[in-house]
Simulated assay, not measured.
Amino acid sequence: MSNKLSKPTCPPWFSELCGIKNLVEEQEFLINGQEFLVKNGIPRSKALFSATQKQTEEAFGFKWKKRDTFESEASLKRMRAWLNERYGTATTIPWLNGSSGSRPIVLDAGCGAAMSGLEYFSPVLDKINYLGVDVSEAADVAAARFAERGVSASFMQADISNLPFAPASLDIVFSEGVLHHTDSTENAIKSIAPLIKSGGHFMFYVYKTKGPVREFTDDYIRTQLQDMSMQEAWDAMMPLTELGNLLGELNIEIDIPREIDLLDLPSGRINLQRLFYWHVFKAFHHPDLSLEEMNHINYDWYAPANAYRQTPEEVRTWCQEAGLKVEHEVVEDAGITIIAEKQANENWIDN
């Protein structure tokens, strides 16, 4: 189903947020001084991106258009379970269930094809006003996927580190695995936080710093891919994906007798595939996914030029400095999940 609208219109909340009445095809307009152009019913920023951010935009635009690599029921089920495990189910969170008496505006900052957005918010989409924003043309894929489900939503193509919205205009910001793909994770957090209303919430997931071998390998592989086309990079990832699949199918466990501090490698029993995955290179494996789906996940990690990793201490500090009180935190080998409340005083300090 096409998301191109013959007579684009704005829902009232989106009109108020952006200060425009209608989305007229090829119309140019300003939102708080930023230039936008409407194309296929979606406002798109005319601002230029940095070289690395432009590459990241192209990498994700390519990936999310390959819908057959992430839309199987097994893939979506895995994502749904992982989101609920880290954030808690949307139906159990009061401020996502209309407890305030009005539909909150939920910005999906870096929505991609709305894989995470649809899987997480589906149970409460009738209780929120969803706005998906992405730096790439994945916003078109997200709009099409919402339209195919008959769900009302709004979309925009823009840099999430330079959004045009007024301060304190958003109720909830959700950014699943995206902030680290900007030019600066810290700046992204601190530029988005002022847009959230006092008492509103920022939900996000960012990559966590890993051991020295994995960090070196990640940077090395990512550098190798930068001179390739997106298809060449996708193809170059496939042998690594095949190796990860082979290791997973072997299903061998080993017992590391002593912690290896020099490599940040813990002791204990570990699956051989997991040992390589966490401590040598990312080669995802899941028995219910196809090679193409696993390659999608590996490509997602390695292809973008921007892919910063951070420590939990850094993330907590950035939240504090941005006036965000961390209410919920999950730290895993893969990354850091945060739910934080925006404080009335941006200089709030956790005592």
Rank of each mutant, 00 (worst) to 15 (best):
W318R: 08
G110S: 01
L17P: 04
R258K: 15
H181T: 03
L247F: 12
Y207G: 07
F174G: 06
A283G: 12
Y308T: 12
G117F: 01
P8K: 03
P8E: 08
R149M: 11
E346M: 14
M203V: 11
Y120A: 04
R274Q: 14
P312T: 09
G150E: 11
L250I: 06
G117H: 01
A90G: 03
E137M: 00
W318F: 12
K63W: 02
I128C: 06
D300H: 00
A114Y: 07
I105A: 02
Q231F: 06
L246M: 13
E314D: 15
T337E: 08
K210V: 10
L225V: 03
S290T: 15
G335V: 04
T241P: 04
Q55D: 10
V213W: 00
D218W: 13
G200Y: 10
R309I: 00
D235L: 11
Y130N: 01
G244R: 00
D126R: 07
M115D: 14
S136D: 03
F202E: 07
D255W: 06
E341W: 03
S2G: 11
I196S: 01
E232V: 02
L250Q: 13
S116N: 14
F165R: 01
Y130Q: 06
A344N: 10
L272D: 02
V331R: 07
G335E: 00
R222L: 03
E186H: 12
T209N: 12
S191H: 11
F155S: 01
V280A: 14
A109D: 04
R103W: 02
I338T: 02
F14Y: 12
N129F: 10
E26I: 04
E16Y: 00
G199Y: 05
Y220D: 10
E25I: 06
N129A: 07
T56V: 05
I260P: 05
P304S: 05
I256G: 02
L225C: 07
Q320C: 10
L163M: 11
E321M: 09
V280P: 08
H328C: 05
G200N: 11
I42T: 07
E232Y: 02
A113N: 09
W82F: 15
E186M: 14
E137A: 00
R149I: 00
Y130H: 09
R44Q: 13
P194I: 07
P12N: 13
E253D: 12
L240I: 15
S169A: 11
F121M: 05
M228D: 11
L125S: 03
V213E: 03
E232T: 01
A113F: 01
I254F: 03
I189P: 05
D134W: 01
P94T: 09
T91E: 15
A138S: 15
S198Q: 12
V206K: 01
Y308A: 15
L250N: 11
E85F: 12
G248W: 00
L265V: 04
K21P: 06
A142F: 05
M238V: 14
D108K: 02
I252Y: 13
F70M: 08
M294I: 00
